Amino acid sequence: MKLQLLSQFEKYLIVEAKSHNTIKSYVAHVNEYLAWFKESYGTPCSKLYRENILDYKSYLLNVKKYKGKNLNGKTINSKLSSLHSLNKFLVIEGIQAEDVITKSDFIKIQVDYANPCDITKKDVEHFRQQILEAGEKRLYALVTLLAYGGLRITEALNVKLGDYNFTSRELIVYGKGGKQRVVYLNSKIVNSFREYLKVRKHDSEYLFVSREKGKIDRSVINKHFKKFSNKITPHMLRHFYCTTALESGFSIHEVANQAGHRDLKTSLIYTNPSREEMKRKAELL
């Protein structure tokens, strides 16, 4: 499969309104399949055949390992999903006529019952205070937005100077698929923004900027997070927001609206006990 075609596939994903991270993941998975194909059959892959896909699925299930362990069903489904998108693209381009991947090919996974949030408000406040005392006002404002606004990290880094209003305490967020929603800001977020803006020196339209260029990259943020915690991540703060919002009296529909969940089932998971709490209960049996 030629590099030009893979470049067109990437553009197709952009048109399909896939997020930056999804596109990056899909392209990586496709390249992994192409490398496996060439190594397995001794020839470059020109199109997708069902027989090859089933062989690859078997390889993922029984041979390929990650850190010495077999891949889990969610990871395998992610790889198959990327190939399914490639399949649709190849059909559109007229390179092949049939869809060789079906829903039945995906591994059925039982939805995790436990609440994925395993940090407390004390953990989050200690994390924020460490960042504040280190003089990291930009990171402090970002962490506060994630923890008390519930944004995805990509959504937060895409916030522009004109997207928020301190008077109305509202922030316009552009989420997955280009969907727009309004997130309501509490005093913690507003105050952290105001203090950050006092020291922010950049003419970029984006709120969170690097010293060298415009919008800061999420990989840089991940490194900064690790300086202060080996447990708290940007996405864990999103879990914290959803859990805390429900505990504070938000309804399921309100949390789904603020967090930008497409399905209420996603919000409902935060009403459940954490994994640690379920383990504790298991010991009581």
Results as ranks from 00 to 15, higher is better:
Met1Ala: 14
Met1Phe: 12
Gln4Thr: 02
Ser7Ile: 08
Lys11Phe: 05
Tyr12Lys: 08
Leu13Gln: 07
Val15Cys: 06
Ser19Gln: 09
His20Arg: 14
Asn21His: 12
Asn21Met: 14
Lys24Gly: 10
Lys24Glu: 15
Ser25Glu: 10
Ala28Ser: 10
His29Asp: 11
Lys38Gln: 10
Pro44Phe: 11
Pro44Glu: 14
Lys47Glu: 11
Leu48Lys: 10
Arg50Lys: 11
Asn52Pro: 02
Ile53Ser: 03
Tyr56Ala: 01
Ser58Asp: 13
Asn62Ile: 03
Tyr66Ile: 13
Lys69Leu: 02
Asn70Pro: 06
Gly73Ser: 07
Asn77Arg: 00
Lys79Asp: 07
Leu80Asn: 03
Ser82Val: 09
Leu83Lys: 01
Leu83Ala: 03
His84Ala: 11
His84Ile: 04
His84Gln: 09
Asn87Lys: 01
Val91Asp: 07
Val91Glu: 13
Glu93Pro: 00
Gln96Thr: 04
Ala97His: 07
Thr102Val: 10
Lys103Leu: 04
Ser104Val: 13
Phe106Met: 00
Phe106Leu: 02
Lys108Thr: 12
Ile109Asp: 06
Ala114Trp: 05
Asn115Phe: 12
Ile119Lys: 06
Val124Glu: 09
Gln130Gly: 09
Ala134Asn: 05
Ala134Arg: 07
Leu139Gly: 02
Tyr140Val: 06
Thr144His: 06
Leu145Ala: 10
Tyr148Leu: 09
Gly149Thr: 02
Gly150Asn: 00
Leu151Thr: 08
Glu155Pro: 01
Leu161Phe: 01
Asp163Phe: 00
Asn165Ile: 13
Phe166Arg: 11
Arg169Ile: 02
Leu171Val: 00
Tyr174Arg: 03
Tyr174Ser: 03
Gly175Asn: 07
Val183Thr: 06
Glu195Gly: 08
Arg200Phe: 12
His202Glu: 15
His202Arg: 12
Tyr206Asn: 04
Tyr206Pro: 04
Glu212Asp: 12
Lys215Gly: 07
Asp217His: 11
Arg218Glu: 15
Ser219Tyr: 08
Asn222Gln: 14
Asn222Gly: 08
Ser229Trp: 04
Asn230Glu: 12
Asn230Tyr: 07
Lys231Gln: 04
Lys231His: 09
Thr233Gly: 13
Pro234Glu: 15
His235Phe: 08
Leu237Ile: 06
His239Ser: 05
His239Ala: 03
Phe240Cys: 01
Tyr241Met: 01
Thr243Lys: 15
Thr244Leu: 03
Gly249Met: 07
Phe250Ile: 01
Phe250Asp: 01
Ser251Asn: 02
Ile252Met: 05
Glu254Ile: 05
Asn257Arg: 14
Asp263His: 03
Leu264Phe: 13
Thr266Ser: 06
Tyr270Arg: 03
Tyr270Pro: 00
Pro273Val: 03
Ser274Ile: 04
Arg275Cys: 06
Glu276Trp: 06
Lys281Leu: 15
Ala282Asn: 14
Glu283Arg: 12
Leu284Lys: 15
